[in-house]
Amino acid sequence: MSLTLSMHREAEAAAPTTETEDPFDFSILENSITKTLDKLKDNLSKLRTGGRFNPEALENVRVQLDKKSKKTERLGDLAQVLPKTGRSLAILVGEKDHVHAIVSAIQANPELNLQPQIDAENPVQLNVPIPPPTKESRDAALKKAAETGEVAKTGVQSARAVCQKRLRGMEVKKVVRPDDLKKAGKKMEGIVEKGVVDVKKMVEVAKKGMEQA
Rank of each mutant, 00 (worst) to 15 (best):
R62H: 11
Q107H: 03
H98R: 12
N113R: 14
K70G: 13
D66L: 01
Q64E: 01
R62A: 11
V103K: 07
I106H: 07
N60V: 15
P116C: 00
K67V: 04
Q80S: 11
P116L: 04
L114S: 07
A108L: 08
N54W: 11
V63C: 05
N113Q: 13
R62G: 00
A108H: 11
N54M: 09
D97C: 00
G76I: 10
I106W: 09
E56G: 02
Q117Y: 08
I102S: 09
K68M: 04
A101G: 02
P123Y: 05
E121T: 12
N109K: 04
V93A: 10
Q125R: 14
N122M: 06
L92A: 08
L89D: 01
N60L: 15
P116W: 05
L112T: 04
V103Y: 05
P55G: 09
G94H: 13
L78I: 07
A105C: 03
D119K: 11
N60E: 15
P110V: 06
K68F: 06
A105D: 03
N122K: 14
I91Q: 09
P123A: 01
P123D: 10
A120T: 12
G86T: 07
A120Y: 04
D77H: 05
L126D: 15
N60R: 15
P110Q: 03
P55D: 11
Q64H: 02
V124K: 12
E121M: 11
V124C: 10
K71V: 12
I118M: 05
I118Y: 07
T85Y: 03
N113V: 08
A101H: 14
Q80F: 02
L58A: 09
E59I: 05
R74I: 15
S104F: 11
V63W: 02
L89I: 03
Q64M: 09
L126P: 14
I102L: 13
V124E: 09
D97M: 12
A108N: 10
A79D: 08
R87P: 05
L126N: 13
G76T: 02
K84N: 07
